[in-house]
Amino acid sequence: MNPPVAELEEAVVLTGGFPVLAGVTLVLEPATLTVVVGANGAGKTSLLRLLGGLDPLARGRGVVAGVDLANGDRRLLRRRVGWLGHEGSFYDDLSVAENLRFAARALRRPLEDVAPALARVGLADRAATATRRLSAGQRRRLALAWLLVRRPELWLLDEPYASLDDAGRALLDELLVDVVAAGATVVASAHDPLRSTQSRRTLTLAGGRVVGES
């Protein structure tokens, strides 16, 4: 049996001295899809950022992808996770394809992966378009293509359905099924529990703590 991808025990994350995560304990098994739901300020984004090594662990214990969050090199962890955030995640003055080639080169992935990733998310005809000219939904699709090129072990998706139209949402659902089947672990935050119908697990956060699980 494969070891868990992530284990948190009473994990606390502070922002300006305030505990945005106030003692979260959870285990993420490999090749699973977990949806984190909760109101604004519940700590969903903070949990994802902690799992991605983007924010430091203030107290408690945590190991993600074999990296100790308290003492390990979080840069090593970051190379193994893929992040899809709320905001625009790209260099606006580069084209769609250039942004993906930058990521591929940084991670020493084959540049040949760029075109199939763009085709998969329906942006093949936008490869030469400046990223700043994309709509919000297209930027979201580009973010998904970035993750496809990266092929991370752990996908961290913050409100992944935001800005996507119905076709985009269907594409994302289909893509998540595929990446989980391929062995990746996915953690996605959402306001709307209905969006988590295909999840094997749903965590409910409130006040920086896990208050429910189904």
Binding site: R78, R79, V81, A106
Partner: peptide
């Protein structure tokens, strides 16, 4: 840009 910082940070450059 916050989003760019997070995305690029996960490249582990």
């Amino acid at each position: 840009t916050p989003g760019t910082r997070a995305s690029v940070a996960t490249l582990g450059l």
